[in-house]
């Protein structure tokens, strides 16, 4: 549904060049929720703005619903008619909602319809229908200033849907909201994705967003996509940084002479009593350092950090046994445990 290839964006100001996007290849399939996660400055915002060409990419192409938008862009800085038409078929929601304070909620939702040249009757019918869809039927005549953050974002979503888009771009839509409201907005996006078959591309710095609604995810660092795939594939990828960040387990080894393993269960394997089986078969004592079960991308996933006595060399056979059971085993390097470098440092902590 959305494909970018070799997308590059270089900002030039006063002789300095900043590469915000460095050859990004992204592929979002129809009907999925795709999350791009990364720190501030990783290039997420540039990426999503390049998708509807609010930012002109320096190089590379963007294709949305089979239409090459970069070819429509033309030479000048202004958007031509064809590009504007293509944009009207792509919805976009913003971190700070970007609602017009001078218009009522209903009039805000009618704005894209005015641009599309719909009649007054069509506009108000559509607007009321959308308000109903986002659960704000009673707020039609309110002004944005009278709404809470979550309600404003609902209006923003309704407005983005006014042109019946197949694609919705979400630019940190929940980053200005509290956790409770974030959940309800994510739920709404998920429902819309299912009910309307809407393809959603969202950017975020919150792992929870990816965890709760994304089918696929990509990790961005310094303008590049360093890891991407469906969430279930990522979880099944040994050493995946995204998978570990989506589903962290903690726990330090109790001594030097130990082997620490991260065991990931999903699907069939999650129901088997593998740990006690392992213990009985090889007659070894297993300590559980940390464990969690969670739903990631709609899948039940379990993760456990266990400790076996002896060095890794002594435990090759038990590790092989676990792998045979269909479990994903990551051997945690002793040196890295405890003082590991955070992959994604806390936003704003720099």
């Amino acid at each position: 549904m959305i494909t970018t290839s070799g997308l590059t964006k270089v900002y030039r100001s006063r002789g300095r060049e900043v590469t915000a996007l460095d050859g990004v290849d992204l592929h979002v399939r129809e009907g999925e929720v795709y999350g791009v996660i990364g720190q501030s400055g990783a290039g997420k915002s540039s990426l999503i703005r390049c998708v509807n060409l609010l930012e002109r990419p320096t190089a590379g192409t963007v294709t949305v619903a089979g239409q090459d938008l970069t070819a429509l862009a033309g030479r000048g800085p202004r958007a031509g008619k064809e590009l504007r038409q293509a944009r009207s078929r792509i919805g976009m929601v913003f971190q700070h909602f970007n609602l017009l304070s001078s218009r009522t909620v209903q009039d805000n939702i009618e704005l894209p319809l005015e641009i599309l040249g719909k009649t007054g009757q069509e506009r108000s019918r559509k607007a009321l229908e959308l308000l109903d869809l986002v659960g704000l039927a009673d707020k039609a005549k309110s002004y944005p200033a009278q709404l809470s953050g979550g309600q404003k974002q609902r209006v923003g979503i309704a407005r983005a849907l006014a042109g019946d888009p197949k694609v919705l771009l979400s630019d940190e839509a929940t980053s200005a909201l509290d956790p409770e409201t974030t959940r309800s907005i994510l739920q709404l996006l998920r429902d819309l994705n299912r009910q309307l078959g809407l393809t959603v591309l969202l950017i975020t710095h919150e792992m929870d967003v990816v965890k709760s609604i994304c089918d696929s995810a990509a990790l961005m660092e310094k303008g590049r996509i360093v890891e991407s795939g469906t969430v279930s594939d990522l979880l099944a990828t040994p050493g995946s940084a995204l998978a570990a960040a989506l589903f962290p387990v903690g726990g330090d080894p109790s001594g030097d002479d130990r082997t620490v393993l991260d065991v990931t269960f999903h699907g069939e394997a999650a129901t088997q009593p593998v740990i006690s089986h392992l213990s009985r078969t090889y007659n070894i004592d297993i300590s559980i350092l940390g464990a969690a079960i969670d739903t990631v991308g709609g899948l039940q996933v379990g993760r456990m950090r266990i400790e076996l006595p002896g060095r890794y060399e002594d435990n090759v056979v038990p590790v092989g046994f676990l792998r045979e059971q269909g479990l994903q085993i990551d051997v945690v390097n002793n040196d890295a445990v405890g003082d590991g470098q955070p992959l994604l440092v806390k936003e704003g902590a720099k």
Partner: peptide
């Protein structure tokens, strides 16, 4: 109309400060 909420009026001042730091890992 009031203001449109938390929107800072200068884009330059736009920051991405999260409420919580969920993005951390080893």
């Amino acid at each position: 109309g009031g203001r449109s909420g938390a929107a800072p009026r200068l884009r330059l001042l736009k920051t991405e400060e999260p409420a919580t730091a969920d993005v951390s890992k080893v």
